[in-house]
Design a protein around this nucleic acid. Sequence first.
RNA 1: GCGCCUGUAGCUCAGUUGGAUAGAGCAACUGCCUUCUAAGCAGUGGGUCAGGGGUUCGAAUCCCUUCAGGCGCGCCA
Length: 555
Amino acid sequence: MTEIVRKILSGALVAMGAPLPERIEVEVPKDESMGDLATPLAMSLAKALKRPPRKIAEEIVENIRDRGDFERIEVAGPGFINFTFRRESLYRSFSELLRREEAFFRKDIGKGRKILVEFVSANPTGPLHLGHGRGAALGAALSNLLAAAGFSVTKEYYINDAGRQVSLLGESVFARYQELFGISYPFPEDGYRGDYVLGIARRIKESEEEKNEGGKYKGLNFEFPQSNYFTSYACQQMLSVIKSDLEHFGVTFDVWQSEKELYDKNEVSGAIDYLRQKGFVYEDEGATWFKATLFGDEKDRVLIKSGGQHTYFASDIAYHKKKVDGSFDELIDIWGADHHGYIPRVRAALEALGYEKERLKVLLVQMVSLLRSGKPVQMSKRAGEFVTLREVIEEVGADTTKFVFLTRKADSHLEFDLEVAKAASAENPVYYVQYANARINSIFRNAAEKGFTGGAGINDANLLPLLSEPEETRLIKKILLYPAVFEAAVQAREPHRITYYLQELAGMFHPYYNRHRILTDERELSSARLSLCRGVASVLKDGLRLLGVAAPEKM
RNA sequence: GCGCCUGUAGCUCAGUUGGAUAGAGCAACUGCCUUCUAAGCAGUGGGUCAGGGGUUCGAAUCCCUUCAGGCGCGCCA
């Protein structure tokens, strides 16, 4: 619908010889009586054309040639142009939607452009927590949206399996391992104290026993932080836990990129050398620095510490270099908001490498605070006490968890109340949306029993005019708006817009269902209403699928 | 101290990239199941969009400032 309006508007502007704006705003008016769609176009042109907005609006309206789809096109308020569709036009579009379904919803925005979405990327030093879950839900939904919009999407998880944190994990496991033999080994100061660390130690011990090598590392003195058996074993274990957690959550990745591999393949040193050749690297006080200030960062950043170890930033440069070199047109990184200070330096590095920094878009996901019945759940990462994503999924379910995450825009703080999320009630918006779809499917089952060719198959455009109730017209208009919502969500990279739309659509269907019977004695009316239901269900299913949430046929 | 994010109904949050009279859910009160699923529906009340100033035809939205909360500001990751 919005496309039709945009088209005739740009046609009118051309006819007038007026400049075409980059984007013609089309919106749904506040009040239904104002029409179906409206544009503030004339008002935004007022300054450039140096004429009153209402005059411009009138002129635009006069220049609209093809108005066959509209019952009314009128100028209102300070200069809005309001459009009201003819019913026949709505029915024609709706019939087209039923026929083409997914193809009708989509617009090819990406045109095959390659886009890499990196998300979660939690250190493999412990299980995923709720904040990671939020990033996972967002990344997965965004990837779905982008792929549906014609982008070629790669989903990637960056594994920080090199460096201090993983070796600290290894040493923590090593300490627990020694304890299993009654040997006291000083537990590392910032070590990981969660129960899972002990679990890994036990597993190492058990696997030794199986191989008749019991106590192989008992009492030995390993050099940490150098990588060794304990580090790599623990890391592998944690990674498989993380993978299985994500699988439970219904989130998958195309690429698991290891940081360690970047070192092993000399890509880190390669990236540093590259920057050095360009003159952006210098030595000072025994350390190797990157001239980040040349590219807008606050200060220069260390790549190699005076002790010889690389910083996290060094491998991150190599990683982002690898990504852009992979001929991706756009990179999206989804990070926790606590990393926001890191953006300028990564952007600076990209620019120094010779890429436009606009290629990288960083989406920050704000913190999640976990509540139970309104009271904060105490978590202490240091003591290893925290509620994991896995536990939350098991308690409230993956669909609900995802839906709650996707009901907020990324950069707003989120309160996640376990009891509220668990309640199978109206407080829980995911059920509200799923329930609408389940109800419709229930109607379809009844319809089939009553000998209707089935809601699923019905598409008789001639019957659609029987849908004359105000609720029906409103539903049709709402459904026809879905493609515009989809497009806006993709452009803004904001999946939550889909979530809200689905709630609104369900919020129109339930009252309709309560007020009007779908299956009546009038066969033709019933058929028409089944078609309407199919349109609703089709959109609900599509939207839920994009969000990564199930759309059960029975509840 | 500097930077980023946030501040909208009692609570949790939207607000279509600056548009018309600011929205939803929950909570509160009142009703609706012998007809397609009551995880539903109908109705009622609720606002200084944190405060102030500015930009313009028009601001919850952009700029400045004050206040409040969160997060950053390492040769940590």
